[in-house]
């Protein structure tokens, strides 16, 4: 599974929950704390984000940055596990 993550600008988020609705992984939820505007803001609640960007697409406040694990390049040699 492709791994991803999000960074949500908690001061900008208005807690509309549309990202929570849009997330196919149910990775997002509302914070227990409130932000400066008085909203409970969106936070990652599970470590299963795939970086699909659905949350950012529906975010009315452009508050979400989405990251995704880089795909291994085809030209690179076989991945080698480095012993600890």
């Amino acid at each position: 599974m492709i791994r991803g993550t999000v960074v949500i600008a908690e001061d900008i988020c208005k807690g509309c929950e549309l990202c929570i609705e849009a997330c196919p992984q149910e990775s997002l939820g509302l914070s227990d704390k409130i932000n400066l505007k008085g909203y409970r803001y969106a936070v990652l609640v599970k470590d299963n984000c795939t970086g699909c960007v659905n949350c950012a697409l529906v975010c009315p406040d452009a508050a979400i940055i989405v990251y995704r694990q880089k795909k291994p390049t085809k030209t690179a040699g076989p991945q080698v596990e480095v012993p600890i």
Partner: peptide, 21 residues
Amino acid sequence: YEIVYKKPQTLTDTPMHYCPG
């Protein structure tokens, strides 16, 4: 990791006044 989605530079940093949602 790489960034796959972020706010465009063509939006200012002013938080929007619109109601939630």
